Computed example of a mutant assay.
Amino acid sequence: MIFSVSLKAQEYTSPVYPKLGKADTIRITSTNDNGVMIPWMQLNEVYVYANRIFRTPEERAAFNRLRYNVLKVMPYALFAKRRYEQLERDLVTAPEKKEQKALVKQCDKEIKDMFNREIKDLTITQGQILTKLIDREVGRTTYDIVKQTKGGFAAFSYQIIARVVGHNLKSTYSIDEDRDIEAIIRSSGFYQ
């Protein structure tokens, strides 16, 4: 206490802003680094894909056919995802069983009205891809979704019909097994 010590705190320097020009209207975030304002912006993630090399023309044709089929049914899978999520939100808010059944019927009617013609025109392969993509988007198999919304008997009936034409409503999506489909989806621009 006898000796006085002189302390020096940090000195405040006003930030140096970049000079604005005539057409500078883009607003971006900046960071103050020792009094110098450094502008920065976050960029979207960039995927880099190598050109795929096919051994035979048949492999190329098969991949192009798969690409066509995936791109054709992907909008249906995305719609199913959005509609199913909305249905789940509505079912949580509906207190009575009667209201829940009415919501399920309304959802079923909406899907049938919207895609009745288009889904009927899908090929067997496109239908198989659609069931896998629905599992990818929703996180549940098509069989589980039908069983929850329509009941066990309806799901069993649909599964029998699907098995007759070569489908399996219980088929799941695996990134490792379906890596070609995953590569097509990632490079297609659906998730930009």
Rank of each mutant, 00 (worst) to 15 (best):
A77W: 01
V104H: 08
Q128T: 03
M1V: 04
M114H: 10
Q10Y: 09
A62D: 14
M74D: 02
L130G: 03
K101S: 09
S30R: 06
L71A: 00
T25M: 12
I161F: 13
L103P: 05
D113G: 10
F3I: 03
P95I: 01
T142D: 05
N32H: 07
V16A: 12
R136V: 00
I26N: 13
I53W: 11
T172E: 13
A9L: 13
R82F: 04
Y68S: 15
L78G: 07
K97D: 11
N168E: 14
N34G: 02
K120Y: 12
I28V: 14
Y173T: 03
Y12F: 14
N64H: 10
S157N: 06
D180T: 02
K19Y: 09
N32P: 01
C107T: 08
I111D: 00
N116S: 15
K81A: 01
P57S: 11
G152A: 12
Q106H: 13
T125H: 12
V165F: 10
D24F: 11
A183N: 10
N116R: 15
I53R: 15
D121P: 00
I185K: 02
L20T: 08
K120S: 15
S157K: 12
Q10L: 06
E177T: 12
Q86L: 13
P39G: 06
Y191H: 12
S14V: 03
S157Y: 11
S188D: 08
N64I: 03
I175N: 04
T142N: 08
M74F: 07
S157G: 06
V48F: 13
L130M: 12
Q100C: 06
R65K: 15
M37N: 07
D90F: 07
S171A: 10
V138W: 04
P95T: 09
Y173E: 02
R186W: 00
V46G: 03
R89E: 07
A80V: 03
I53A: 09
T25A: 09
D180Y: 04
L43R: 12
R60N: 01
P15V: 08
Q10T: 05
K120C: 05
Q10I: 01
L103T: 02
Y12P: 04
